[in-house]
């Protein structure tokens, strides 16, 4: 199977988020970057599992700058065979999708994987954009994926249940919790990753359809009101009269 896994670089989940230039830019100072958890835990691991079962190649693709190579090497250490980095800064979902579609259009991938969203901009749009650009079937929010011949059977977690779908390859999938379990790279994987190919591709023309004007931090809570554990009726009174939530 010829599998493509698109990965993003995001701030670590524990990162404190700050902004600079009058709240118009994300302040990367002191921020540790990681592979987007949904891309790593679900997409990448499931793609590697399918390769282990059926044979084939797992290619990881990142749209980003040279500093992203450390994240790409981790994907190779976990078990991807080769990597491609499209050498441009990922300024918006549409800009990224256009680069991915341009790269993937003539490579005959059987499945193109995305995480359900990135944990920084929480868009979840790139997968659908690439599906529309390449006119390929799209399965979003998949929590389970099995391949049988040229057909894939997937589960989607939907409100109030699980939707079961079938699709012929090639197709595009965005993955969610349940798809696979996290894999920690071992020393052998890390050593081998250094010798695996990482191809740098120059971008096609950029197109942004949105622009971030400014950021805002959530308003700080005015301070917690503590209630004595021996006077719980007071908490009920506050929730009813003051907060008006019961």
């Amino acid at each position: 199977m010829n599998l493509l896994v698109c990965i993003s670089k995001t701030p670590d989940t524990t990162a404190r988020i700050a902004f600079k230039d009058d709240f118009t830019k994300f302040d990367e100072g002191g921020v540790q970057f990681i592979m987007n958890p949904f891309d790593e835990f679900y997409s990448l691991v499931r793609a590697i599992e399918l390769k282990e079962k059926f044979g084939g190649t797992v290619t990881v693709l990142n749209v980003g700058e040279p500093a992203n190579d450390i994240v790409i090497r981790k994907a190779l250490a976990i078990g991807a065979d080769k990597a491609v980095r499209i050498n441009t800064s990922p300024t918006s979902a549409f800009a990224v999708a256009k680069q991915i579609a341009e790269y993937a259009k003539d490579k005959s991938f059987d499945i193109i994987f995305f995480g359900k969203e990135t944990i920084d901009y929480n868009g979840g749009e790139v997968s659908g954009m690439v599906a529309a650009m390449l006119d390929l079937p799209f399965v979003n929010l998949a929590s389970h994926l099995e391949v049988d011949g040229t057909t894939a059977k997937l589960n989607r977690d939907i409100e109030g249940g699980v939707e079961k779908v079938e699709v012929e390859m090639p197709f595009i999938v965005s993955t969610a919790k349940g798809m696979a379990e996290q894999r920690i790279p071992n020393m052998r994987g890390i050593m081998m990753a250094k010798r695996k190919p990482l191809e740098v591709v120059e971008p096609v023309d950029k197109e942004d359809r949105v622009e971030i004007l400014k950021y805002e931090l959530p308003k700080a809570k005015s301070g917690v009101k503590l209630v004595d554990p021996d006077n719980i009726d007071e908490l009920v009174r506050l929730l009813h009269e003051e907060a008006k939530v019961i």
Binding site: F94, G123, E125, V126, G128, V130, A131, F138, R209
Partner: peptide, 23 residues
């Protein structure tokens, strides 16, 4: 912004030549 609407935004953005924002 649920399992029915989430997949549509990216696809419609391209299909309608539109800008898109989720959530």
């Amino acid at each position: 912004f649920n399992s029915s609407g989430k997949p549509l935004v990216g696809m419609l953005s391209y299909m309608l030549d539109a800008s898109s924002v989720t959530g």
